[in-house]
Simulated assay, not measured.
Amino acid sequence: MNKHNPTSPVTANVDQLSSVLTTVNHAKGLPNEHYIDPAIFAEEKRSVLFANWSGIGFGKDIPEAGDAKPINFLGMPLLMVRDRTGEIGVFQNTCRHRGMILVEEPTKIRGAIRCPYHSWCYGLNGELRTTPHIGGPGQNTHEDVDLKELGLTRIRSHIWRDVVFVNIDETAPEFEEAHADLIERWKEFEQPIFHGGETASFKLNVNCNWKLAVENYCESYHLPWVHPGLNSYSRLEDHYNIEKEGKYSGQGSLVYRQLKSEDGRVLPDFNGLSDKWDEGSEYVAVYPNVLLGVQRDHVFAIILEPVDLENTVEHIELYYSKPPQDAPELDDLRVENAGLWKTVFKEDIFVVEGMQKGRHGELFDGGRFSPAMDGPTHAFHHWVATQIEKGRTV
């Protein structure tokens, strides 16, 4: 067979993963099939996204007891709910009777979660409360139907930095164990954060596989050409790589420049930060699909929603050390800060979409990495390949 003739995507994928699972100095990137082949996308859904702690939403979207928000996560209907104690729970958004969707739009639940089909009702904690006429007209109980066994299917979840993480297949280690290193690394930021309001929330629709957004975020190599404004003061040589095998990777900067108004006003810092953060900042991809950034006066979180094989929505939220209503005189700075980040994130769109188009080049072999600059991106590729091999073994 001619060496340029395409082989079976799955066969090629199996053969090429070994070239990913080596050191950055010699590795190739994930093969094309990981970006354009539906069969591989379905495999990654199970082995990568469902088998690990994936981000699906934000606590700020359900701020009060009774608030509920439906989420479509890779075709699976989920429901985030804040209960009467203030805790957030995640459930499968499916009635246990006939499989009806329970909640179609974000809403405030005044009493119970009521199925619109036969009016079975569930508490905010997922417990089945009432089953009208289940034993016949006027008979709301039946001896063969145990309400305790028919509560909503609870999804394993964890809240960190206002991101709602879920582990669909329930096989991942506890979140605090899986991400102990990053929690320790950023322990100075383990303090209350406050969402910046309407202007601090935006989303970008990008025509690319979700992994390309992770890969681009991980590295600073592209700064001089893609982000000339940012690179004018936070230069390539001011950045360093961050890599924690099997957990996360990203970049840090030694020259974070705090936003300052013409009259000298600045956003308030988080409490008790060490000198490292006076001019330092870090940007980390928490595998698989959450991107986090920390600076002295604000932080952000991005959830990458894998809509389908070649489309992703980036949900971006900015947070501060004090509630906006406590410092309305700083509204202009928060608006300016959000605008600056939006500009930076939009500058990346043509890159990730261009790489997606490039993955349709049948002769592309996954590419080579710069041993000095691409360590964080290779670390992500290595982790994805490891998860896929683990899934195939299981």
Rank of each mutant, 00 (worst) to 15 (best):
G272H: 07
T22C: 13
L340V: 09
A39C: 03
A285T: 11
D83L: 00
E177H: 09
K3C: 10
L267H: 03
P268L: 05
V103L: 02
N13V: 15
L152T: 04
E149H: 10
E198P: 08
G123W: 03
H26I: 10
R265L: 13
I349F: 02
G151K: 07
T153K: 15
F194R: 05
N32L: 08
G293C: 12
V166N: 03
D348M: 03
L204N: 05
R114W: 02
G361N: 15
P192Y: 09
H118V: 05
E353R: 04
A112V: 02
E184A: 14
I109D: 06
M373G: 01
G252F: 01
A68G: 11
S261K: 11
E174Q: 09
E353C: 01
G59R: 11
S370F: 06
H34R: 01
P323M: 12
E64N: 14
V166C: 08
P224K: 07
E190T: 11
G55E: 09
N13Q: 13
G59Q: 12
S18G: 10
Q16D: 15
E336L: 05
Q139M: 08
R154A: 13
S8Q: 14
E33C: 01
R359P: 00
H381L: 04
K276S: 12
V384A: 01
G252N: 05
H315G: 02
G272M: 01
P6V: 13
D37V: 05
D308M: 11
D37L: 06
K203Q: 10
Q387M: 11
L79V: 09
A112Q: 06
V255E: 07
A213S: 13
A338I: 03
I168T: 08
Y233F: 15
I101F: 05
Q191D: 04
L267D: 01
E190K: 14
G339T: 06
D144N: 12
E215M: 07
E174L: 08
L30T: 05
E389I: 15
T7C: 14
L309N: 14
D331C: 02
V344L: 09
D169H: 04
E262L: 12
D83K: 01
G339M: 03
Q191F: 08
G57R: 04
F380C: 07
H222I: 04
Y248D: 02
D238E: 10
H239A: 09
L182V: 12
V206D: 01
N271Q: 14
A68I: 10
P63C: 14
E245N: 15
G264N: 10
H4W: 15
E329Y: 11
G126P: 01
W277T: 06
I183T: 03
T393A: 12
E176M: 08
R161E: 13
F73D: 07
L49Q: 03
V10S: 14
R185D: 03
H381V: 05
N231F: 12
N205W: 06
G135D: 00
T377H: 03
H227N: 11
R368M: 10
S19Q: 15
C115M: 00
I109W: 00
L182S: 03
A42V: 02
G361T: 13
C121A: 12
H382S: 09
Y319L: 14
P106S: 05
I71C: 11
N337W: 05
I101Y: 00
R265C: 11
N207D: 08
Y35L: 02
G59D: 12
E305I: 15
E33M: 06
K247W: 07
I159H: 07
E44P: 07
I109F: 02
F202G: 00
M355Y: 11
D374T: 08
L21C: 11
